[in-house]
Design a protein around this nucleic acid. Structure first.
Lengths: 257, 257
DNA sequence: GAGTGGTCTAGACCACCCT
DNA sequence: GGGTGGTCTAGACCACTCT
């Protein structure tokens, strides 16, 4: 078995992470991508940080620059890094603006983006009930933080929102005096949790007593109900959120591709 | 100005399509991609057809195989071609299954995919009214085909749907005796129109008399209203569709990324 | 001017599919 | 066995940003 002309047979790299050698279950660039995701997830590379150049990373890991490039481009598609020609590659930093643009799909009928405010925010702690445990994949006895609030747009109540968070992921949240309007950037900055993806289930409901009161409308009016679960980089559920929305002069926008 | 060592200075290619030579406004792979999109749009390459290999295309156009590869991969992401290792690259063919999977976002609460049937399909022709002209970017006097139908799932009425099509794009549609349940594959097969993307605006409404009758429910119940516009490869609006949906045990699913 | 990512090329080998 | 797309490498030049 002469390894003379054999590429792809690099040995232990100084990076600490192992690359599969023979008969790789995954292609090299996918393994390299996984290494980089891990560095972001564990905080070795922090949000906003400039990471080493393609050539440096290639040398460190022991692959070609083209392979590192492919991995970094994949991370850019997933919004985990930002690449800027002439400057370098940066770990994506969540900001209120970017998160709103990315995950908030309500728009004015004219097309304008909606930037909601938060009112009457309440927070409590409890043992997770059955539904909460299922949604957040928690064990019996685990504690959750429950947040409820009304979100307004142009001075009018628009969304009545209930948010459930696994307490273990947000150790200091209970002690915070105020909860910020946009949560995901706060999660990343304060708790090192990058919200990476999720899903939202939409149904129509008639306003009940509680929603009618919160949204200052008559009971029975048709509302949109958004049932959302969001996941962290390690695929752990990190938030369950139910938003009851009064869409007057507004809509939920979905791009079909 | 010796062009000896200058790459990127290919001259007229035998493909008929022109590649920008110096100071390209767009990168080469994007120009190559545009050539390929054109071939699909104009029917030079037909749905389901095996297109030439990367090497052949590269030789024909006068670029490297890697550049053709980048263009084809971009087309695969846009669902315009399908690549199969060992077999070749095929122009994507719309099938009822694939179109339903791609653009139909209603699911059973258990997660199962919904495959709706069509009932009571009606069709008429008229001059487009103001709203139809705006939605479909039509001139005054242009004619549209209006289709209405009720879509059922598990034997129960689920969706009351109104579809408006520019008549000019569908010359023979009026004479068809029956309109198929899934339209987009029919558009591609019969009229050479590939539906490439669109947008859907979601609101909640209370059932009116007409919807209540069609869906066999009491007036006033909360329903989801989907307002959809779809576009062809040349960005021309090709369909305006309003679907009023009764979601009992079902929901509209959106992936957040 | 030095360094970065972006584009383009060329060539090698692998995995897969067909006949 | 021969052809296809998929992976990986190596090297060149371009466009952009900063100092």
């Amino acid at each position: 078995m002469s390894a003379t002309r054999k590429p792809n047979s690099k040995e232990a790299s100084p990076s600490g992470a192992e690359l599969t050698t023979a008969l790789a279950a995954q292609p090299l660039y996918a393994q390299v991508e996984a290494i980089f995701v891990d560095r972001i997830r564990t905080g070795v590379w922090r949000p906003g940080q400039l990471i080493p150049s393609e050539f440096e990373l290639a040398r460190e890991i022991g692959v070609s620059q083209g392979t590192v490039r492919k991995a970094l481009n994949a991370l850019a598609v997933d919004n985990l890094v930002e690449r800027r020609q002439g400057r370098g590659t940066f770990v994506a930093e969540h900001t209120p603006d970017k998160m709103l643009f990315r995950f908030f799909n309500l728009f004015e009928d004219g097309g304008g983006h909606i930037e909601p405010d938060s009112q009457n925010t309440r927070m409590s702690i409890a043992r997770a009930n059955k539904e909460e445990r299922e949604r957040l994949k928690l064990d019996v006895g685990a504690e959750v933080i429950r947040v409820s609030r009304v979100r307004t747009h142009a001075g009018k109540p628009m969304i009545y929102e209930t948010i459930v968070l696994p307490r273990q992921f947000f150790p200091g949240l209970v002690k915070e005096k105020t909860i910020p309007n946009t949560l995901y950037d706060h999660f990343q900055k304060e708790y090192g949790l990058t919200v990476s993806h999720g899903e939202e289930r939409i149904t129509a409901v008639a306003a009940g007593e509680r929603e009618a009161k919160a949204l200052e409308i008559a009971p029975g009016l048709p509302l949109i109900r958004l049932d959302r679960t969001m996941y962290a980089l390690n695929e752990a559920p990190i938030e369950w959120r139910v938003s009851i929305c009064l869409l007057s002069g507004a809509h939920y926008l979905v791009r079909l591709r």
